[in-house]
Computed example of a mutant assay.
Amino acid sequence: MKPTRVHRVTLISALVVALLAGCGLVSSSGTFHEAHLPDGRQPLDGAKLVVTSKSFTEGVLLGKITATYLAAAGADVKDLTGAPGSASSRQAQLNGDADILWEYTGTGWVNYHNETETIADPHELWQRVHEIEKRENNLEWLPPANFNDTYAFAASTPNAKRLHVKSLSEVAGMAVPDRTFCVDDEFFSRSDGFIPMLQKYGIPYNDPNGVPSGNVTRMDAGVVYTATAKGAPCNFGMVYTTDGRVKNLNLVVLDDDKKFFLPYSGTAVVRAAVLDRHPELRELIGTISKHLTDQLMQELNGRVDIDGEDPADVAYDWLKKEKLVA
Rank of each mutant, 00 (worst) to 15 (best):
G40M: 15
A312M: 09
H113C: 13
L61C: 07
G96D: 04
D310P: 01
V129E: 04
K200F: 12
K64A: 12
H7G: 12
K290H: 13
Y205W: 07
V183F: 01
Q298M: 13
K54A: 13
S169L: 11
M297P: 03
E34S: 12
P279T: 07
R245G: 04
A268S: 12
P43Q: 15
T31Y: 10
K48Y: 06
G63W: 05
Y104I: 05
Y316F: 11
L25Y: 00
D243E: 11
E309T: 06
D257W: 05
E299S: 02
S55Q: 07
D121M: 10
L142F: 05
A120Y: 03
V239D: 01
Q93H: 08
D99Y: 08
S13V: 14
R5A: 10
F56C: 04
V304I: 08
E136F: 02
D310M: 07
A154K: 03
Q298L: 06
G40D: 14
N159P: 02
T157Q: 05
V26M: 07
T31V: 14
G24P: 03
G231Q: 00
K166Y: 04
A92F: 09
C234E: 10
A75V: 02
Q91R: 05
D76W: 00
N111M: 13
T107K: 00
H7L: 15
W141H: 11
S167N: 06
G244V: 04
D313Q: 04
D305V: 15
A145F: 10
T107N: 08
Y240P: 12
H36M: 12
G244A: 09
A71R: 03
T180H: 03
M238L: 15
A120S: 08
L296H: 00
I65A: 00
P143C: 09
S189T: 10
T81E: 01
M197L: 09
T180M: 07
R179Q: 05
Y205F: 13
P84F: 03
M197N: 05
F147Y: 07
G202T: 01
V183H: 01
E133R: 00
K54N: 09
M238Y: 08
K323F: 05
V171C: 12
S89F: 09
S189C: 12
A73C: 04
E117N: 09
P38M: 10
V325H: 07
L25G: 10
A145K: 01
V270T: 09
W126I: 07
Y201N: 03
P177H: 02
R162G: 14
R277N: 08
L37K: 00
H164E: 09
T10K: 13
I285G: 00
G222A: 15
I306A: 09
W109Y: 06
E136C: 03
G30A: 06
A14I: 10
L249M: 14
E131D: 14
D121T: 07
Y201P: 08
P3L: 11
A232S: 15
N250T: 03
D121P: 00
R245W: 13
S27L: 15
A35V: 11
L62S: 12
K134I: 12
T150G: 08
G96I: 10
L254W: 06
D307G: 07
V9D: 11
T118K: 12
D39T: 03
Y225D: 13
G59D: 13
S156L: 13
C182H: 02
F153Q: 01
G302A: 01
A72S: 02
M219D: 05
L324V: 08
L44R: 00
I195R: 10
I119Q: 01
